[in-house]
């Protein structure tokens, strides 16, 4: 009976958190228009969310692209199909690895920072102080961060994919001797703008939305102690990763079919 009870309790807590998260999201949307009227708030957040994540995204993208180029070459060369290297690298990056890996890195770099920042503002009564100054922290603190995260993520994913393809090009064409013309033409013949690129961008947008949502909600809902903040930060990374991977499966099934 005990485990049944604890299962029930866990379920109820989960539903309660989900419900509160959605209500929170509605409030954030309500505060969004205020953010648009004050672009300086948005720019400051684009800096700490987007610009500061740029380095890790670009370096990871380059590495992933180079490894892809190397691995795929070794497989393709067995079939004498190394000319398809560009296609394979580009498709894997644009459809899957770009959005997913960039989103996971985004959750680790920007998401955790967001949770920690908002959580600490709560723990040090800054949010409460803001409320007492008749300023809504949802509008001033949460909404700009949310919007900045949502806008940054597709850009970061695109940078990841583009840099990755250049990395694959460098390894495949520069080091392994694949024909440069074949690399690009095979890629262009088989990567479709709507089917692949636009779907990839949609994916990254959805991931950015969810990861930022989790991050700001965890921060805003944190237990206002040092321990509470550190727990929320961990939760942000773990939950974002779960959400991104689960959503990736759903979106892939919807977009590229096969089920």
């Amino acid at each position: 009976m005990d485990w049944l009870q604890s299962l029930g309790r866990t379920g109820l807590i989960l539903f309660e958190r989900l419900g509160r998260g959605h209500l929170f999201l509605l409030r954030v949307f309500g505060g969004m228009s205020d953010t648009l009227l004050r672009p300086s708030l948005l720019i400051a957040q684009m800096y700490s969310i987007g610009v500061l994540s740029f380095t890790i995204i670009a370096i990871s993208g380059l590495n992933v692209g180079m490894v892809l180029g190397l691995q795929m070459y070794n497989t393709l060369v067995d079939f004498g199909a190394e000319d398809s290297l560009g296609q394979v690298v580009a498709l894997s990056l644009v459809r899957e690895l770009g959005p997913v890996v960039a989103a996971l890195l985004f959750a680790g770099r920007a998401g955790s920072a967001l949770t920690a920042e908002i959580g600490l503002m709560k723990a040090t009564e800054q949010l409460s102080g803001m409320e007492m100054m008749a300023v809504d922290p949802i509008k001033r603190v949460v909404a700009p961060r949310f919007l900045a995260g949502m806008l940054s993520m597709p850009l970061l994913a695109a940078i990841f994919s583009a840099v990755g393809i250049l990395g694959g090009f460098f390894v495949g064409v520069g080091l392994l001797g694949v024909d440069s013309g074949a690399f690009w033409s095979q890629m262009q013949a088989n990567v479709d703008l709507r089917e692949d690129i636009v779907n990839g961008v949609i994916k990254s947008f959805v991931f950015g939305f969810v990861a930022t949502w989790i991050a700001v909600y965890e921060g805003y809902d944190t237990v206002p102690t040092t321990e509470g903040v550190s727990r929320s930060t961990t939760r942000t990374v773990v939950h974002s990763a779960f959400a991104i991977l689960a959503l990736d499966f759903v979106l892939t099934a919807l977009m590229f079919g096969g089920i």
Partner: peptide, 15 residues
Amino acid sequence: RKHMGMMFQTGALFT
């Protein structure tokens, strides 16, 4: 609230 001021225990300054 615009007519109320509050001084928090920690100060609650924006860091």
